[in-house]
Amino acid sequence: MSKGHLSNDDFFQKLSQLFESSTHGSIYLSQKRMVYGENVNTGTPESTPGQPFPDLSPSQPLPLIVRASNGKSKEKRDKKVKLSTIVEADALEGFFAKYADVCKTSMSGLKKRDRSKQKEKLKAKKRKQGGGAAAGTVEVKKS
C-alpha cells in the first residue's frame, strides 16, 4: 500500500492485465471512502454533542479508494498483486463507466445468456397460449 496509488487510467490498465494473467482463484475488488491518508484532507470534523456523526454529512465530497488484488497470501505471497487508485468525487461517473467496461470484458467466465433455450421456451409458450410474450421478451430487451 505504501507503494503509492496508481492513476485511474493506470489502474484500469493493470486491472485488465491482472484479469488476463489469472486463471484460477479469485480476484478481489473493493471500494471505500478515503478517510485515512497523509495527503488527503478528510474533511470530517470531530464529533460534537450537537453533531454526533459528522461523517454522515461531510462538508465536501470525499474521494474513494478502489483496490484490486488477486488474493494471493501466505506461501504465495510473492505472487500477490495489489493495485489501488483514488477516485475523486467529481471523477466518479467516468471512472465507473470505464470500470464497468473493464469488468464486463474481463469477467468472461460467467454464464452467458442461453438464447436457444429461451427461444424454445417462448415457442412452447406461444403454442400453449397463442401469442403470449412473457419472459423471453423481457430478457431480449435487456440486452
Binding site: 484479469f19 484460477h24 479469485s26 475488488l29 473493493s30 471505500k32 469488468c103 474481463s106 467466465g109
Partner: peptide, 14 residues
C-alpha cells in the same frame, strides 16, 4: 459511510 466497504469478488470457474 466512513467505515463501510464494498468488495467484489470474481472467482474463476476452475
Amino acid at each position: 459511510p466512513s467505515t463501510t466497504r464494498i468488495t467484489t469478488k470474481y472467482t474463476h470457474a476452475s
